[in-house]
Amino acid sequence: MTGAAGGIGTAVVRRLTAEGAAVFATDIAADALRVLIEQLPGTAGLAADLARPGGCAAVVAAAIRGLGGLHGLVHCVAIGKQIPILDCPLELWNQILAVNLTTTFEICQLVGRRLAEQGDGVLIALGSGAGIRPNAGNAPYGASKAGLIGLMRAAAMDLAPRGVRANVIIPGPTDTPLMRGMAGKSVPALRARTMLNRLGRPEEIAAAIVFLLSDEARYVTGAVLGVDGGFSNAGVRLTDPG
């Protein structure tokens, strides 16, 4: 699990360990990661910046050593910045694409090799509705998330003959510290634009991820599943707060 110390990541790690899975957790936030691992027996981990050269390789190697093997990857690492397209410096564009898309490619390749060798396993990456329908100021972030969908579908095509599945989950507005920090005053608007009129709980995202990792989903590959209260598919509600 990458991004394991975040709101969604923590819920996924908890749910997986509760179901008897052995989890290797990684995050750039070393202190939060250590606290998480201490709380959950059967979990190992390594703090790392996956976007730095060698970061992904170190984590995957440590995971394989630590767990004695791998069945799946849940990748939840992204950076974002609201910036109008006319104002976005090339350096920022490159940085967002590198962290959000290229890192996804790198870690999926490293884990994918292991899974392909054994003829079994699942790659899951977390996407964003911005990759399908962006807000204003979403050009680099939205493009990276659209690219992520294309990447995971392409991975599904390459890896299907090897017995490995690849899918994307798009979490909706979820009640995490990161989300509240980013959205600030627009939380009520986000809530009102989900079909269910509420934010999601991290546990709800985790439940869908666990389903996709399981044998129950063995015919699911190349899929993009929104776990977002209908946010990504919602049209205009008459009482739209605007």
Binding site: A156, E204, A208, E216, A217, Y219, V220, A223, L225
Partner: peptide, 30 residues
């Protein structure tokens, strides 16, 4: 294999999932 996805969506494990088309197609449409 299709019924497994149906059962998941009916259940509380899918409590934040609505308005979705969940493709269970072996990668065919992708």
């Amino acid at each position: 294999e299709i019924a497994a996805a149906v059962s998941f969506l009916i259940s509380d494990d899918a409590s934040f999932i609505t308005g979705q088309v969940f493709l269970v197609d072996g990668g065919m449409s992708a």
